[in-house]
Design a protein around this nucleic acid. Structure first.
Lengths: 348, 348
DNA sequence: TTGAAAGCGATACCAG
DNA sequence: CTGGTATCGCTTTCAA
């Protein structure tokens, strides 16, 4: 522990120092610098104060300011798992907008662990975060009661809740699924399978629902078990699921996958069944993660604007923060099918 | 602006409420909860206080605490560009360790923009961050003077500075380069090219230097322009560089690339030159980004433990924070060559 | 071992 | 338009 608590270099200048240097009262200095709307300051005095502040290198203390005003300019961003390639752009997009509005981003990765989530939320709350952006929501799980009770404004990012109406920035999954399906149908495919991501996220659930609805709508009349939901998000999950399907006599001629990793697992299943992609089986992925254009064959997939989604989530939150009365606006962004070479006309 | 400042739901319980509920003085409550070393508290009283705190759902206010103690438990993490696949694991690793030690992570992505960097650093400083983890360092650029003057402890992550000795967590690039080169040499390659990332990061610079040194060491006697440094990090940079090299009569039979993206660009150059990888030209990448095992051919590359590197950076910083007197310890992690199928014995 | 009181740095009321 | 002053929630010195 050593000597105690003295900073080695600099005792940071405080507002008092600025006031002293400018020859005004500390209260005046405060008003001059924070541009108080209600209390006007003489332009000349204000200029002098600003000059003095600049000269001595004054930086306002957010901590002190927050204590006094009960409003921090910090937003907590909670992420379930950064190794999921959709997460980094979400975080960056949010951070960019938050910074533009003068907010600092508190970041945490829960690694899909409930205890970690509780701990991180408590930390955000103990920092009196002005708002929260959550990418961790599970469809059927209510929000953590501490969060609800705290009354902190929050926005859900990329996922939302079944029951609770909370502002959210999400993707219109049905558009993505529809585009993929219609493209496959236009290629002559009728027996199309869906190898899905887990449905405890709203995104996963909506993809499954959209698949069922749209295939019915288009009159495809698929066996119910052509839509399978996997336990995980990995290549092997996709591989296992498609392997089972390819063993059937009425095997699918095309597969729509809930994400790109599993789509690549489908490649393996196809190869192991001694079939070829796309000649025998077409594959469509979802998300357009990096390098999907370089796999063999280049993956046809649904490109999702995650960076933008992060920006929108932050924008929504800033709106709520600026106007507490505003309703629960949500935004929904549209993905777009990206045709590459893992899809081809139906052969059979 | 409406009514003013009242929280809709809950006036959060403060230490005073805890003290009241436990029937003790606020100072006693403080000591009981923060386990003051110097001022012992009667175990029975302490228990009562803790119980009261739990009962009314007290969460200490970090803001007030920080103001009082002049020590926040917040660490700023500055990232140059989250779309670089090495960054997310760095951030997660750091956040994990920081959270374990009770620190909250302030996150910012500068997008390689100097103005953004200045702004974000100022924000971290105005939050009185207890420390900084920087992944933005450029080899030849001194640290921002505000940072230096602030005296805030900092650690460099994945990159370091030429001149200034600052604690850092980095990779031993020479080991990665040596492993790659020795493997290629063992395959019979003599004419090995290096298609490098920019050298304004220490990592990029050290990779180049290691290439030069080790090839000389092994007696390869390469033309100097077999080591080329690209302007960017993209596939097209690698493609352009290798295209030029393949046009030479003494073209290389193997290429070591400064990152995976550029290695994939090399694939394109090889194909355009109507050669094959690995039959005619072997390629080795660097970083082992996701999906490099699925490209065609699967990329032999140097796997770098970035998540761990993030953990180490945070660990280093926590050490410094716990013991201000500690020397500038740095850590250096070791990468490991991952052999896949983009490398083969030299044909010529 | 506990109570009393000062004060971190800023804002926002109140007078003047 | 500007000066004085209370105060946010907490820690910590000083007394008791």
């Amino acid at each position: 522990m050593g000597t105690g608590m003295d900073d080695p270099a600099a005792a940071k200048p405080t507002l008092r120092d600025v006031a002293l240097a400018a020859g005004v009262h500390i209260a005046t200095a405060s008003r001059a610098l924070s541009g108080s709307k209600t209390r006007p300051v003489n332009p000349r005095t204000a200029a002098a104060v600003r000059q003095a502040a600049a000269k001595i290198g004054y930086v306002p203390d957010q901590v002190a300011r927050s204590l006094r005003t009960h409003r921090t300019r910090a937003i907590g961003v909670l992420i379930p798992d950064m190794s999921n390639p959709v997460m980094p752009p979400l975080v960056s997009g949010a951070e960019q907008v938050l910074a533009q509005h003068g907010y600092t981003t508190l970041f945490a990765d829960t690694d899909n662990d409930h205890a970690a989530e509780t701990q991180r939320l408590a930390a955000f709350l103990s920092w009196r975060a002005a708002g929260l952006i959550l990418a961790t929501a599970r469809r059927d799980q209510p929000l953590a009661p501490e969060v609800v009770n705290s009354g902190v404004p929050l926005v859900l990012m990329s996922r939302k809740l079944d029951a609770t109406p909370v502002p959210s920035a999400t993707i219109d999954e049905s558009v993505g699924i529809a585009q993929a399906l219609d493209y496959l149908i236009s290629l002559g495919h009728r027996r199309i399978a869906y190898i899905g991501v887990p449905t405890w996220t709203s995104a996963g659930y909506e993809r499954l629902m959209a698949f069922r609805e749209i295939t019915r709508d288009r009159g495809l009349d698929l066996p119910p078990d052509f839509a399978v939901v996997c336990e995980g998000y990995a290549e092997r999950d996709g591989e296992a699921a498609l392997t089972a399907l390819l063993a059937r006599p009425d095997r699918p001629t095309a597969v729509l996958s809930g994400n790109d990793m599993m789509a690549l697992g489908c490649y393996d299943a196809i190869r192991r069944a001694e079939l070829r992609c796309p000649a025998d089986v077409s594959v469509v992925g979802y998300n357009d993660m990096p390098l999907t254009h370089r796999v063999d064959p280049p993956l046809t997939t649904v490109r999702v604007p995650y960076f933008d989604l992060g920006r929108q989530a932050a924008t929504l939150l800033v709106e709520v923060l600026n106007d507490r009365g505003s309703m629960n606006r949500s935004v929904r962004l549209t993905p777009r099918l990206l045709v590459r070479n893992s899809t081809a006309p139906a052969s059979a």
